[in-house]
């Protein structure tokens, strides 16, 4: 059993997004966080102070633990942002995207 079977979901065609350049399969309608969970990725950010990994915590946009860079926009809440075909998702280090560039890359 899985959640899609349980709810008899017939999602649209899967598409590809990238996480730090690596292809990840996504379903239309899912958030960035749901896509990464489905791909078995539990963490996509490191903290500013001690560099510890973080992923989803509250799941409803309150805690800001799941911050991620999507198409060059840093500090997006992965649990709120829907995925779109071709999205370039990047892990974040500290206050911004890994590598330090915020706008215009990818």
């Amino acid at each position: 059993m899985n959640p899609l079977e349980l709810t008899r979901a017939r999602p649209g065609r899967p598409f590809t997004v990238t996480l730090d350049g690596r292809p990840v399969e996504a379903l239309p309608g899912q958030t960035v966080a749901a896509t990464l969970w489905a791909a078995g990725v539990p963490a996509w950010r490191t903290t500013r102070g001690t560099g510890r990994p973080r992923g989803v915590f509250c799941g409803i946009g309150v805690c800001f633990d799941c911050l991620v860079t999507v198409n060059g926009r840093a500090n997006q809440r992965a649990c709120l942002v829907p995925v779109h075909p071709g999205d370039a998702i990047r892990t974040q280090e500290g206050t911004g995207p890994a590598g330090g560039t915020v706008q215009g890359d990818e």
Binding site: N2, P3, Q30, A34, W37, C58, G59, I60, C79
Partner: peptide, 13 residues
């Protein structure tokens, strides 16, 4: 609640 929200909204575990 977060686990439940992700399950209900995104159909993921």
């Amino acid at each position: 609640g977060g686990a439940q929200a992700m399950l209900k909204g995104g159909l993921v575990l």
